[in-house]
């Protein structure tokens, strides 16, 4: 279940109510939400090191380009639920399946 593309960036999960997602749905249904979290220092390339040095030495004006992030590289299956007004909803790409430093 846990994908290790770089040590540290891991798939984690938390049991939530659909309402905890803050997407505006009214329902009593629940889900397992999976997300990617952890450091990506080991996966950094020269590109990232250069960006780090350039931002530090203020050579890029006010630009701050993003560096390697621990992000989903695949999403979990869709999730469907019935709301309090008896209407079905389906969420796509709402939860991670695989993580990577990208």
């Amino acid at each position: 279940r846990i994908s290790v593309h770089s040590r540290g960036c891991l798939l984690k999960e938390v049991h939530l109510n659909v309402t905890d997602l803050g997407l505006g749905y009214q329902t009593k249904e629940e889900l397992i939400f999976r997300y990617c979290s952890g450091p990506c220092v080991e996966a950094e390339t020269n590109y990232d090191k250069i960006l780090n040095n350039l931002t530090h030495n203020k050579k890029l004006d006010k630009d701050t380009p993003s560096r390697t992030c621990c992000r989903p590289i695949a999403f979990d299956d869709d999730l469907s639920f019935l709301d309090d007004n008896v209407v079905y909803h389906t969420l796509k790409k709402h939860s991670a399946r695989k993580c990577g430093c990208v």
Binding site: H15, K28, E29, E30, L31, I32, L79, F81, L82
Partner: peptide
């Protein structure tokens, strides 16, 4: 409702 919760878990 409990069955629907169990299904989604």
């Amino acid at each position: 409702l409990n069955a629907a919760k169990a299904c989604n878990l």
